[in-house]
Design a binder for these strands. Structure first.
Length: 361
DNA sequence: CGGTTTTGACCCGCGC
DNA sequence: GCGCGGGTCAAAACCG
């Protein structure tokens, strides 16, 4: 495998790097530093990705089916994968949708971010119960504690992205129940917490608006759906035949399933856009168009296979990406990633839409 | 009336 | 140990 060093763009969370790191800029907890390392490969596989991630022990990454399959899928779609390892040597990876540098290539880079400590420690409860109400709370707390202690909570892979949208909660085809809202430090905009309403589906997502650019919504998905998108049935209800998931994506329904679900949601998007809701479904739009080897439109019954071996097929067929990415960014430029990152990150150009995917295991 | 949202309290990890 | 901030719970309010 041939590598070519070109430059890198790293993305870190705020707590990982602290506030105000050099020339980098913060976007509500995400820090974007300058380009410093970047690899270009001629051909790639999911394993090739891992090798390029520079991760010493990447077995954990490969153990995550949806992540592995996602990367494999992205390889076929020539998407840039970004990974990281922090100062403590812990690994995580981040994904940034990008256009390929050259034909037959995908771009991998290495960055940093701190892994989250998932250890659940026992807590000492107050021995004396002073009031009846207090006692009830203690009971509840104890039950919670036992539950959490027994089943060690492990963080699912997380995918974060930013979308320029007037709507905070972007429709993605799934049904969500809001279970919390918190004020975000240094931001006038709160962060909302959602859970998938489907029973036993533990997928969560956070939605917050960037304080540096209030037009940008930062959405973070965590977990994997164990069910198809309700949008599928809605599409079916509309008389649309949905093709089955293909390839490596058929195993499950990741929260940001880069395959089947979003692909199908894409149809809903198009329908909604027809229904004059242009500000919704941008995520679905983007991810679907970027990651699906198949671009199937049930409304036109058209099914395209984007050949992973050619850049032009992707460039010409932006899918719905062009809905959120200015056309001048969709060009076959060797420095695209750098320019892409610069525009979005440093210039705070209001006309620019940032699409960022973060895989945080 | 059932599902969803709101919101204050609580839990937990982490840094000092 | 304490405070802070992120994340979650759960009762009340809201809504179709």
């Amino acid at each position: 495998m041939e590598k070519k060093e070109m430059g890198v763009m790293s993305v870190k969370s705020e707590e990982d790097v602290g506030v105000g790191g050099g020339s980098s800029s913060l976007l509500n907890g995400f820090q974007f530093s300058s380009v410093f390392d970047f690899y270009e490969v001629e051909k790639s596989s999911s394993l090739g990705f891992m090798e390029l991630l520079g991760v010493e022990n990447y077995s954990s990454l490969l153990d995550v089916p949806q992540l592995s399959s996602t990367m494999s899928s992205m390889a076929h779609r020539q998407t840039t994968i970004m990974s990281s390892s922090d100062t403590n040597g812990k690994d995580c990876s981040e994904v940034l949708n990008q256009l390929p540098q050259t034909p037959n290539s995908c771009s991998i880079s290495s960055a940093s971010s701190e892994a989250v400590n998932d250890e659940q420690h026992n807590r000492t409860l107050v021995d004396q119960v002073q009031e009846d109400g207090e006692e009830e709370k203690q009971k509840t707390s104890k039950q919670l504690k036992t539950k959490k202690t027994n089943q060690k909570r492990q963080r699912e892979p997380r995918f974060a992205f930013m979308t320029k949208s007037e709507v905070d909660h972007l429709e993605d085809g799934y049904r969500w129940r809001k279970y919390g809202q918190k004020a975000v430090k240094n931001s006038p905009f709160p962060r909302s917490y959602y859970r998938c309403t489907t029973v036993s589906c533990n997928v969560k997502k956070r939605v917050e608006r960037s304080y540096t650019d209030p037009t940008i919504v930062v959405t973070t998905y965590e977990g994997q759906h164990i069910h198809p998108s309700p949008a599928m049935s809605r599409s079916a209800f509309a008389g649309v035949q949905i093709p089955p998931p293909t390839g490596a994506l058929s195993g499950g329904f990741p929260a940001t399933n880069f395959g089947s679900v979003l692909q199908e949601n894409n149809y809903l998007l198009q329908y909604q856009q027809q229904q004059h809701h242009p500000h919704q479904q941008l995520l679905v739009n983007t991810l679907s168009s970027l990651s699906n080897p198949y671009n199937y439109n049930p409304f036109t019954q058209e099914k395209k296979l984007c050949n992973p071996g050619t850049t032009t097929s992707f460039l010409r067929d932006h899918g719905l990406l062009q809905d959120v990415v200015p056309s001048h960014m969709l060009k076959e430029d060797e420095n695209f990633i750098y320019q892409y990152g610069s525009k979005v990150i440093n210039k705070e150009n209001n006309s620019t839409t940032l699409i960022h995917l973060e895989v945080d295991e």
